[in-house]
Design a protein around this nucleic acid. Structure first.
Lengths: 208, 208
DNA sequence: TGTATCCGATACGGAAATGTATCCGACCGT
DNA sequence: ACGGTCGGATACATTTCCGTATCGGATACA
């Protein structure tokens, strides 16, 4: 039934869909989700509303689709960026964090989207589940990577999911601070320090 | 000049203003800022648009006024709640955190407002300054309180502003997690744990 | 009690956004 | 190349929201 209700998704269709999704990011980031209109998104994408309604049934649907696509992409990028060789040279926790942190870019636009999506999700139980699932996905992606990075440091993680949760919280919380005061580099330094402290707190030396 | 442009603010005026401000919180939290309309706010407050335009010139202005009022109130509440006698009985960092944390309620509605305000502020340099100032105010309020609470624990803060910044980040980051999974009490436990770790990281034992 | 002012209500014009119904060009398979 | 279908454009009806201009009741003050 669900497959029957949606159109066959031809090549052409997929392209306009994607252009709309890309336009959505730009417009939502610039105007805010609630302030955005169907027309603005269409204009940004170079279409008229006809194209929109032929592909999505509401701005909400577009928003969700866009968010899921970009989140997934972000995770994929992270995994790839971090899977490089440099991991072998890591000897300290600080190095590990320094290696990991820049892999998640502090992106102004994306942060706005995320903030509004979160607020939106809090009003909608099914969206809350989506967010919770994503958080788990992030944890599952990050912790293995981190554990690999920690190999050369002589420490091991004591509580995987607690560490994952803590890192996400710290990451999100400090991201705002960095964006609000982009010129203050002590904010950035402290962000790094805090991450190091957290990793230290949730790992311990391997005894041999 | 600025005093001349605004009406004399009589008793009556102040009351309707306040009712509008209160209504704004409800409506914005429920609908999202961008989706809210002047009429919705007025209806919630029991007025018509006439009252609104006689007191504010735009939804933006109302939003900002409401946010500033509530933030200030929140800080005042915090200061009061925490200034009680119980501080003297505190002997461990965990106790200190347990005492401090519940003073900042995890409020669904307020979080939504904050998230959207933050996103909004990132688009507007002058609003960014407002947020930065508020962050400083929070730090300035919290750290003295925390230091007082730590008296009985035999530890002292090594870097005030870094600790303040870290606590805010952790607070904000974990608040989302708590709201997204309100039934999962391990999230809440870990929140506390994380706070304790952070306080430990930014304090050290007093040597005598 | 009378009167002047204040302030929220009402009424109106107009702009903007929505969703649908229809059209027409492009791309598909044969 | 040709007929059919697909998908975006166009046109339109409708709703919603906004901001202003004006009205009238309430309130303050003599």
């Amino acid at each position: 039934m669900p497959a029957a209700v949606r159109p066959p998704l031809t090549r052409r269709r997929a392209e306009t869909r994607q252009r709309l999704l890309d336009a959505a990011l730009v417009v939502f980031a610039h105007e805010g989700f609630g302030r955005s209109t169907v027309e603005q998104v269409c204009e940004q994408a170079g279409f008229t509303r006809g194209a929109f309604y032929s592909n999505f049934s509401s701005l909400d649907e577009l928003f969700l689709a866009m968010w899921e696509q970009r989140s997934a992409q972000l995770l994929a990028d992270l995994q790839e960026t971090v899977a490089d060789e440099a991991v072998d040279g890591i000897r300290t926790v600080r190095q590990a964090v320094e290696h990991l942190l820049p892999a998640v870019p502090v992106d102004d636009e994306w942060y706005r989207i995320t903030a509004e999506f979160t607020a939106h999700a809090l009003r909608n139980p099914s969206l809350r589940k989506v967010m919770a699932a994503r958080e788990k996905a992030i944890t599952d992606t990050i912790t293995p990577v981190l554990e690999r990075s920690l190999k050369g440091t002589g420490r091991r993680v004591t509580n995987r999911s607690a560490l994952g949760q803590a890192l996400i919280a710290v990451h999100d919380g400090t991201t705002v601070q960095c964006l609000i005061e982009p010129d203050d580099e002590t904010v950035q330094k402290r962000r790094l320090d805090l991450m190091v402290h957290v990793v230290l707190a949730y790992t311990k030396e391997i005894d041999r």
